[in-house]
Write a protein that binds this DNA or RNA. Structure first.
Lengths: 185, 185
DNA sequence: GTCTATAAGTCGATAGAC
DNA sequence: GTCTATCGACTTATAGAC
């Protein structure tokens, strides 16, 4: 609030995220983002140094949220309850305010690679896998643990919804994820 | 074999598929594809009318394979054994010769939408979901059925592999998919 | 079938006025 | 903070020689 003369910067972020996810990063031009906001390209360049900079701005927010999550997970290792809580918190991240960012990523993997943000994100997801599978080395158990995480991420992807128009409720995805990560009997 | 003067057309398809999956459809120029094959752009235009045409050429091959699969599934409805066989055949498709096409799709969803091939593919996946979940309407059961399909599709996506460099063996993915689609006890 | 050359357009980014 | 105007570097696609 303090010192904020206008919200143009955040409006650019929101519109860019939406268009990048819908049409793809490369296919979305700065001209199109500017037109949507009744601005010119030059105005965009006042708020962001480059087109890539817009992506970095919201990717670093997500990275911080994931780092907090992983830090909590690391400090509560080797507890079944903690593994469940990690899934719960991850579900809250991907279904909450960061859902548009998750959607952008799933729709723009090649762009993420070129912008140099894919590797860092992949590393965080890999650590999440390790926290959830908790040292189990049976390949099937590991795959189920990864699917638990995927079940939550897929909430941001309309393609895999039951009804293509309506994403499944977050609590269903969380319940299925928890049972996938639970030890077999 | 008969009538094939050269294999240039297939070499273009293979290289384009690889580059599209790696760098993205928009980011890959016809110049780059031509250079990789020691050809010129103009030579590409002899074999394909447009850049979009290259994509359509391998997407229609995959569509035929999926249509065969769905046709078989429709004619063997309401049998648990048939539902398992559908998953087995789908696994063979996505882990076999069509794996590069699946990988292209997962990396280029926005491009697929714009090329007008996304909707047809999404419809086939939705029908596959319906065949696998076999009329169950419990949301959790439906989500598990979708995850069975996703477990198989993810074989084409290195991001979700246990070891980022090595995709999990197809038989593990199939086994987990089968148990996800099986009725609960 | 493959080439050279070029048309026609879009893009990201910058300079400088206000 | 936002504008107009522009630059240079691409891109897809075509024409026509060989």
């Amino acid at each position: 609030m303090v010192g904020r003369r206008s919200d143009t910067r955040e409006r650019i972020q929101r519109v860019a995220l939406e268009l990048f996810a819908e049409q793809g990063y490369e296919k979305t031009s700065l001209r199109e983002i500017a037109e949507r906001l009744d601005l010119t390209k030059a105005a965009l360049y006042y708020h962001f140094k480059t087109k890539e900079d817009i992506v970095h701005s919201f990717m670093s927010d997500l990275a911080s949220a994931l780092d907090d999550l992983l830090e909590w997970g690391r400090s509560h290792r080797d507890s079944a309850h903690a593994r469940e809580e990690v899934l719960r918190r991850f579900s809250a991240v991907v279904a909450g305010e960061y859902a548009p960012v998750l959607r952008f990523m799933q729709q723009n993997m090649p762009a993420m690679r070129e912008l140099g943000v894919k590797h860092a994100f992949a590393a965080k997801i890999q650590e999440l896998f390790r926290l959830v599978c908790a040292g189990e080395d049976d390949p099937a158990t590991q795959l189920r643990s990864r699917l638990a995480v995927v079940a939550l991420m897929l909430q941001a992807n309309p393609m895999f919804a039951a009804d293509p128009e309506t994403l499944p409720p977050a609590d269903v995805a969380l319940r299925v994820a928890l049972e996938l990560a639970a030890p077999r009997d």
